[in-house]
């Protein structure tokens, strides 16, 4: 997978297929991006599990915190890692000990570890880096267009009015990743310089 620019169909396939998402580094502080993303994905119908050893015994929006991936009592489709790039590898190594393996490992906006990604991909796990699933879901469903964001999708069908807990259609005609290529190139240059 080219991790500099993901085809929409790759992201769409992931968000349409996963049901359970363990969020590593989920924060109960309601101004942290992990909190927003957790809440949004829960509202869109995903089975969310907050993972953070510092908050065991507490709940995030009604879901009990667990200390580690190994403590989760059910198969996980996707692991969403809200940690800095330098803390990615141990999480991926722990994920690779799970049975069954997760189908997707997703690293948040700003997080990227190519070695960890290669390790996960070598056992057939799909990897997304430096993206936010909330933003991607909002973009592909065009919900985010309310903020003036370029969804890079088109549709001539009547839009559903979104309500709480409702899954939106991500199956719009895609304009492809090409039209925000400038932003993708800038991210790539930044990775190469660092």
């Amino acid at each position: 997978m080219n991790h500099d620019a993901y085809p929409d169909n790759y992201i769409r396939g992931i968000l349409n297929s996963v049901k359970s998402i363990a969020m590593v580094g989920a924060s109960p502080v309601n101004v942290r991006p992990s909190y927003f993303a957790f809440k949004y994905l829960a509202q869109r119908g995903y089975d969310m599990i907050p993972v953070n050893p510092g908050h065991v015994g507490k709940e995030l929006l009604g879901k009990p915190f667990v200390a580690s991936l190994a403590d989760i009592d059910r198969p996980i489709d996707m692991i969403d890692i809200f940690r800095n790039s330098s803390h990615i590898m141990p999480v991926v190594e722990e994920a690779l000990t799970l049975d069954p393996l997760p189908k997707v490992i997703w690293m948040q906006l700003g997080a990227r570890d190519d070695a960890a990604a290669a390790k996960a991909e070598s056992v057939g796990i799909k990897v997304v880096m430096n993206r936010c699933p909330k933003i991607e879901y909002g973009r592909l469903s065009s919900e985010i267009s309310w903020m003036g964001v370029n969804s890079r999708t088109l549709s001539s069908k009547r839009a559903p009015a979104p309500t709480q807990g409702m899954r939106l259609s991500l199956n719009r005609m895609s304009v492809g990743g090409g039209d925000t290529a400038a932003s993708d190139r800038a991210a790539k240059n930044k990775t190469e310089q660092s």
Partner: peptide
């Protein structure tokens, strides 16, 4: 969104 798409930007 229309102008962002025409200019190849991320948002407007």
């Amino acid at each position: 969104e229309r102008v962002a798409a025409l200019e190849g930007g991320t948002a407007a």
